[in-house]
Design a protein around this nucleic acid. Structure first.
Lengths: 77, 77
DNA sequence: TTCAATGGTAAGTGTATTCTTACCGTAAGT
DNA sequence: ACTTACGGTAAGAATACACTTACCATTGAA
């Protein structure tokens, strides 16, 4: 399941209904984690690397700024 | 709100009841993300840096293995 | 222009999650 | 010993969440 996939294909790969898949995809799309393009009557989705990058950037800041210094403090270093 | 805090103090800082706070703390404690010590009639909680370290380690593996290679592939690098 | 394929949306349902109320136990002060 | 402060736990209520069924819109093929 690498690269672009249609909703129907995804739906076949999970034990839930197609509408449920659509609803998940909508949320992922709103969060910019996936993007989609029309292809005839079907709609093809793919992961959006930039979306994941921004999640990672956020996490890096989180760990870097807050926790590292906090850990040092606690450990008395 | 840095360093150790009592349950009552925490409770005052959130718009939910004290028992709700206790329940959250229990879960965080089970997950080793916080630790607590008795101090008279009150109980003082603090973040547990080691717990967060293991979360970070997990995330690093996640990003490192799967996503970096995927991103390269998508970008055609 | 009719039909089949594909997928989005709305409304409702079941379940999981998270909260509150009520109660109990323990520690410290008087 | 009595009382107050503080917090954990149990049980039930409220809310949020993920799913299904039913329906509609759009595209492409016959």
């Amino acid at each position: 399941m690498k690269g672009p996939v249609s909703v129907g294909t995804l739906s076949g790969a999970f034990p839930i209904s197609r509408p449920a898949i659509s609803q998940h995809l909508r949320i992922l799309k709103d969060a910019r984690l996936v993007s989609d393009t029309a292809a005839g009557t079907r709609r093809v989705y793919q992961l959006n690397p930039e979306g994941f990058e921004s999640v990672r950037a956020y996490l890096d800041r989180f760990w870097g700024n807050s926790l590292h210094s906090f850990k040092k403090k606690v450990e008395g270093k």
